[in-house]
Amino acid sequence: MRFSHLPFSDNVVSGGRPVLRVAGRLAAAGVILLAVAACDSVKSLNPFSKPEVYKPEIVPVKPAEELYNDGLARSAKGDFEGAYKAFDTINRQNPGTTWAQKSLIMQTYVAYEGGRYDDAANSGIRYTTLYPNSEDAAYAQYLLAMSYYKQVPDVTRDQASTQRAVQAFETLIERYPRSEYVKDGKFNLQVVRDQLAGHEMEVGRFYLGKRNYTAAINRFREVVARYQTTRSVEEALMRLTEAYVALGIVSEAQTAAAVLGHNFPESPWYKDAYALLASKGLEPREDTGSWISKLFSGGQFR
């Protein structure tokens, strides 16, 4: 019997059965050994094949006083980031304690000094909420307001931070009127109010340029109604004169110019308003029934 059809080219027959040569057996055995070795290698690389040993790491807890002094030292060196972490640790490890209160005001301070204004604002809000009657509450409110103040954008952008600054400074002045921070707070309040008025003027001038007079009037009216103590009010009255002339609402145009001339007779904006009316054969004349007149009468002009 022949076995030429089998896939072995060097088979021999023994007892009527095909037998692999020794070399073939060794080759087969080598493949098996390699497979086993490969399995062992993969097993050695498998992190889940080894028993897990948990080694707890014991981190010593520093006393609050030590952390506080460390925070003060870092703050004095200008390491506001390290100081912030030290004071924050005290707050987390010692809630409701005197150390937590002391560290919270310091955390607000170093966040502000380090330029982390959002963190400073959040810490300031937390402090004034938890300790509204403490001796440092006015300072916390001042830092809160200044954190918003530092984020005031230019007049062409959204003024959300400016609005928050106004509210925070007003709270400082109303809640802590005898505080040493009130004087600076009033000055900065005027600055941010000027900023808000400037934003309204920017938008109003845009609408005026697009000949959307109604939208422009609404913006200038906002300035006249809410920001009378700002430097923008003179221009706002002149722009109202301009917009009302364009709409043909003569009485309101004359009133805006008359109120402008009465309150700011030397203003270059009044000269412009007067010249505009004169070019139309008109002159300033106040209508006491106008909303403009009512805003500036009865001591409403601040």
Results as ranks from 00 to 15, higher is better:
residue 22 V to W: 02
residue 145 A to M: 07
residue 262 H to L: 15
residue 14 S to T: 03
residue 3 F to H: 09
residue 220 F to V: 03
residue 110 V to K: 10
residue 165 A to Y: 00
residue 248 G to V: 09
residue 73 A to I: 06
residue 285 R to K: 11
residue 127 Y to C: 02
residue 75 S to Y: 04
residue 128 T to N: 00
residue 113 E to K: 10
residue 26 L to Y: 10
residue 256 A to I: 02
residue 197 A to V: 09
residue 297 S to I: 07
residue 93 Q to C: 04
residue 233 V to L: 11
residue 281 G to D: 12
residue 226 R to H: 04
residue 94 N to E: 13
residue 17 R to D: 06
residue 98 T to R: 14
residue 249 I to M: 11
residue 114 G to F: 03
residue 284 P to Y: 12
residue 266 E to C: 04
residue 80 F to C: 11
residue 165 A to N: 04
residue 250 V to R: 11
residue 289 G to N: 15
residue 5 H to I: 08
residue 113 E to W: 03
residue 147 S to N: 08
residue 167 Q to S: 13
residue 128 T to H: 00
residue 4 S to F: 13
residue 125 I to H: 09
residue 298 G to K: 08
residue 241 T to I: 10
residue 242 E to Q: 12
residue 219 R to A: 13
residue 114 G to R: 02
residue 199 H to Y: 03
residue 300 Q to Y: 08
residue 188 N to P: 00
residue 109 Y to I: 10
residue 61 V to Y: 02
residue 5 H to A: 11
residue 175 R to I: 00
residue 123 S to F: 06
residue 10 D to C: 10
residue 237 L to T: 12
residue 9 S to D: 15
residue 234 E to W: 05
residue 126 R to E: 08
residue 205 R to P: 03
residue 54 Y to R: 09
residue 191 V to I: 06
residue 299 G to N: 14
residue 226 R to Q: 07
residue 238 M to P: 01
residue 146 M to E: 14
residue 183 K to D: 01
residue 239 R to H: 00
residue 118 D to Q: 10
residue 207 Y to A: 12
residue 31 V to I: 12
residue 213 Y to T: 10
residue 199 H to R: 14
residue 180 E to L: 12
residue 147 S to A: 07
residue 250 V to P: 01
residue 4 S to P: 05
residue 69 N to G: 15
residue 287 D to L: 03
residue 136 D to H: 10
residue 177 P to H: 04
residue 33 L to F: 05
residue 69 N to A: 11
residue 142 Y to T: 04
residue 290 S to Q: 10
residue 125 I to G: 08
residue 180 E to F: 06
residue 26 L to E: 04
residue 199 H to I: 02
residue 138 A to P: 11
residue 199 H to M: 04
residue 224 V to D: 13
residue 295 L to A: 13
residue 98 T to Q: 14
residue 189 L to A: 01
residue 33 L to M: 09
residue 128 T to R: 01
residue 79 D to H: 08
residue 248 G to I: 07
residue 146 M to Y: 08
residue 95 P to H: 06
residue 150 K to R: 12
residue 74 R to V: 13
residue 276 L to V: 08
residue 127 Y to R: 03
residue 104 L to D: 07
residue 76 A to M: 05
residue 115 G to F: 07
residue 68 Y to I: 05
residue 136 D to T: 07
residue 264 F to K: 11
residue 151 Q to R: 15
residue 285 R to Y: 01
residue 182 V to M: 05
residue 285 R to N: 09
residue 212 N to K: 14
residue 60 P to M: 12
residue 149 Y to P: 00
residue 227 Y to C: 13
residue 134 S to W: 00
residue 255 T to I: 10
residue 69 N to C: 10
residue 272 D to T: 15
residue 228 Q to T: 05
residue 80 F to N: 15
residue 214 T to D: 12
residue 81 E to F: 06
residue 213 Y to W: 15
residue 189 L to F: 05
residue 226 R to W: 03
residue 105 I to D: 00
residue 94 N to W: 13
residue 109 Y to C: 00
residue 160 A to K: 13
residue 272 D to Q: 14
residue 206 F to S: 05
residue 193 R to K: 13
residue 208 L to V: 05
residue 27 A to G: 07
residue 122 N to S: 06
residue 65 E to C: 07
residue 36 V to R: 12
residue 193 R to L: 06
residue 36 V to T: 11
residue 23 A to R: 07
residue 152 V to F: 04
residue 173 I to P: 06
residue 144 L to N: 06
residue 155 V to S: 04
residue 132 P to H: 00
residue 239 R to M: 09
residue 116 R to K: 11
residue 36 V to L: 14
